[in-house]
Design a protein around this nucleic acid. Sequence first.
DNA 1: GTCTATAGTCAGATAGAC
DNA 2: GTCTATCTGACTATAGAC
Lengths: 196, 196
Amino acid sequence: MASRSTQILEAAARMIARRGVRGLRVEELAAEAGVSTGLIYYHFKDRTGILRHTLAFINDRAARYTQDRPAGAEPLGPREELEHALLLELQDTPEVEENSSAWGELRASAVFEPVLREDLARATLVWVQEIAALLGRVHPLSPAAALAAAAERLTALVEGLSMRWLSGGLAIDHARTLLKEAVATELGHLEAARNS
Amino acid sequence: MASRSTQILEAAARMIARRGVRGLRVEELAAEAGVSTGLIYYHFKDRTGILRHTLAFINDRAARYTQDRPAGAEPLGPREELEHALLLELQDTPEVEENSSAWGELRASAVFEPVLREDLARATLVWVQEIAALLGRVHPLSPAAALAAAAERLTALVEGLSMRWLSGGLAIDHARTLLKEAVATELGHLEAARNS
DNA sequence: GTCTATAGTCAGATAGAC
DNA sequence: GTCTATCTGACTATAGAC
C-alpha cells in the first residue's frame, strides 16, 4: 500500500515538523524513511523536489482529515462545523501538530523559494473557499465578497496563531479561545452588515 | 555614529530579509557589512549570536519607527492611531518590508531554535500591550481582558497577513484592506459587548 | 578591534553495481 | 528501483599576525 515514495514523504513531513525545512537533511531523511539517499534523489530529483512533493502530500492529508467525520458523530450545525473546521489546525494531537508545523515552515520558506509559491497559493485558495462556504451556510444572505474577506481573515488568523503557538509564546487553549471569539466577531459583523 | 557592530547588524537584517535565516551566510554577511568574517565572530560569538542580536536590533528599530510621527503631522484620533500602528507593518516601503520579512523569518526560526523564543515572546508582549492600550483609548470602558484579546487577535492577524503577502499569495493593498476591516470588526465587537 | 588564511566539517548530489 | 561509495563544493569557526 504505502509505496516507497509515500514512505519517504511521510518521513519528510515528520522531519520538517520536527526540525524545520532548514533542518531537513537528506541523509537524515533517508535514515528516517529507511531508504538510501540515492533513492530519494531518484524519486524527487533534488532538495527542492522533496519540499514541493511534501507540500502536496500534507495538503492531501489535511484535506482528508478535514472531511473525515467520525461515523457515529451526530451531524453538526453550520456554525459548529465552521468552528470545527478552523479549530482543526490548532490541536495538539501529533498528526495535526505535525501538519501545522510543516505547513508553517513551508509557508515561511516560500518567501525565499519561489518554486513553492504556486502550490501554496492554490492550497490556500482552496482552504479560504471552503471556509467561505461554511460562513455562507451560517449567513446565506451575505454577499460573496464579504464572506470571502471574512474567510481570508479567519484563515490568516489561524496561521498567525499557529505560528505563535508553535514558537512557544501562546498556549494552545488560549489560541483556541481567541479563534472562537474571532469567529463570533466575524459572524456578528456579517450579521450587522446585513441589517443596514 | 554607526559602530562596527551596528553596521553588521544592519547588514544582517538586510540579508535575512533578502535571503532568509537559512540563507544567511556569514561570509556573505561580512561582504555586505564591509568587514571580515573574523570580526563578526569576534563580536557575536557564533551564528546563533548573530541571529539573537539581529532580532533585538530589528525590535529596537521597529519601536523607533512606531513612535516617530512626522513633525508637522496633525495629531491623529485614537481610532486613526490604532489603524496606523497596525498598518505600519504592512507597507511595501523598503525599511518596513525588511523589518517585516526579517521578523517573520525569525518567528518561523524560533519554532526550532529555542534560544530565540524568549526575546521573541517579550517583543510580542510589548507589541500586544501597545495595541491593547490604543484599543483602550477608543473604548475606555471595555474590560482589560477584552482589550488584550482583541489586541492579540489583531497582531496575530497582522503576522498571518504579512506572511501571505511576503510569500506572494496576497497583494499588499488587499492585505491592508482586510486588516482595516478587522479593526472595524473588533471595535464593533467591543462596542456590542459593552451594550449588553 | 580588525584582518588574512585555513582547518575541519558536513551536506547535496552523482556514478555505477545489482 | 534500490543501494553503496564517493566527489565536490560550501560553510562555520578558529588561529595568529597586526
